[in-house]
Design a protein around this nucleic acid. Structure first.
Lengths: 127, 127
DNA sequence: ATAGAGCCTAGAGTTAACTCTAGATCAAGC
DNA sequence: GCTTGATCTAGAGTTAACTCTAGGCTCTAT
């Protein structure tokens, strides 16, 4: 068993092109092939892919993801390095969240400002 | 009074090139010039620029920022449209935040998993 | 009056991350 | 046996958002 590239594209939202690109670039470890050379994704490949998407979506550049994946493929002696990378990434994401929350404040402030302009122009018309 | 492009670059962190590019692309309204043709940024320009940075940092593409800025320049009759855009952007940012928080969970989960591997390999050595 | 700093424009170049194309294989169904 | 649909590779093309270059002003300090 295992899924074809088309099925994976379907249920990750990534395109087939992107999946092949990820593999070519070493962002995704090599995936097994069947007799006719087609990629077959096993459940653990799907897991890895999802985690890679997490790294990507939180803004880790492809080059660094590549580094992380190469640690992955080197086995258990790289676990401490992987922890270090992930903890740094987590801090990173946390400060992104803080930034975004302050931008929400800013957007809100502007909306309120605009609303107050609308209010006062309504009053003017009423006068 | 007013600030030069170099001073603005200094205190926004944007490069001089980027500031000119923003103006050329209509992302930033036209800035006044002095007698010798150099840009002079007034406090209100700085305000607008900061807000543009907020839109950009929250993921609004340059094309849409452009649209927003053109509404800005059309005056008060576009305020309702601006509110609509900003509220949509706010929702947008809120769901980014939610996403990021769930990714933090995921990173944490992986770190814990790695730590448990380290723990159990320590025990093995001790045995 | 000249050297240097900071500014100008137009337009070319770069980078990251895809995205697509061409030409080929291969298994399944009519 | 032939078409259709999914897959393959290598490599070219695209897009967004800058980033830089060349060649040219203008003000200030020596």
């Amino acid at each position: 068993m295992g899924l074809t590239i088309g099925q994976i594209a379907e249920n990750t939202g990534l395109s087939i092109h992107t999946l092949r690109y990820y593999e070519k670039e070493g962002i995704m470890p090599h995936v097994k092939r069947n007799e006719s050379g087609n990629r077959i994704y096993e459940p653990e490949d799907v897991e890895v892919l999802k985690f890679i998407c997490c790294l990507k979506e939180t803004g880790m550049p492809v080059k660094e993801i590549k580094k992380f994946v190469s640690l992955l493929m080197m086995g258990e002696q790289t676990i401490e390095d992987r922890i270090t990378i992930l903890l740094r990434q987590k801090e990173n994401v946390q400060s992104q969240v803080d930034q975004l929350l302050s931008y929400i404040q800013m957007l809100d402030g502007k909306v309120e400002f605009y609303k107050s302009i609308l209010e006062s122009s309504k009053k003017e018309k009423r006068v």
